[in-house]
Amino acid sequence: MPSYWFGDVSGGRCTPVAPREPAHLSRRLDTLACDMAAYVPFSWEMARDCGFVSTRGEYIRILRDLCMLRAEEVLAQVAARPEQELIQMVHMRDQLDEVINHLSEKALEWHAARSPGFSRKYRALRGSRVAIVLGGSGNVHIRNVGAGIEHLAAIRRDLNRDIEKAARALLPNCTALVGGIVAARLLSEAGGLVPLSRLPAGTIQVLGARTALFFHLTSGTPPPKHGIIYQHRRVHRASRERRGRVARVLAAKLAIAARIDLYRGAPDEKFLALAQAAVERAGGLHDMD
């Protein structure tokens, strides 16, 4: 028995939906089964013969109102998800990093061009130290850019703090394991808390290593050991031969942590203690099998 947005057809007889309010039509549409095998193509004339509408213009108008309403509803749902904001914050942080690096690079180049004795070697010119060097320049523009970099760095610091805070609220267990930034990145790559919590550990392990993974699948290069979780210090500080193991164990614990985060939303101290110990063990130099 095919059902369409305007009515049900059964035994050659069509029963129109009433009332024709978009909200009512939309709720009814949600109850219809999604099954292509049983689908019978239709034309608008069926809706007319059904008594649902009398003209083509009316048909299009009601259908369009219904579809606009449904699309707007989905958009509103997505926008209301708390992780949406967190994902945007992480994107902005990445952008700030990029801008700060670019500006520092160019301003230092200019500064070096003016002072022949200047070299970047042995100076560990990172972060706020760049601003100090630039602030001492004799050129007003270089000094101004230096002040701008300092300002951006302050924004980044505050943003970082808020990302940590938001991640701790939304993903308390994941954040405890890998820190707010990495947890937020995983969330962003997975597309939300619900999708993240449904990923198997193996996927979490290589989340963010898409290119390497597909290259492995198509041409047999070694598989990626880690994706985003590499950014967590326990993975990138592990010795080369243990990195894969740490990544694997950490991903396994993250998969559990994400589920606790979704369904309980509170830190589970007992789980965390065991998980931390497991990750330590994986990275430790002792008791290697």
Partner: peptide, 25 residues
């Protein structure tokens, strides 16, 4: 919103069954 003959469908094209009841031939 400004063109009365566009019917937007927020859906995945790999799974047409979910918008099939809305789309005429």
């Amino acid at each position: 919103a400004r063109r009365k003959n566009i019917i937007p469908l927020f859906a995945d094209a790999t799974d047409p069954a979910c918008y099939a009841p809305l789309v005429e031939q």
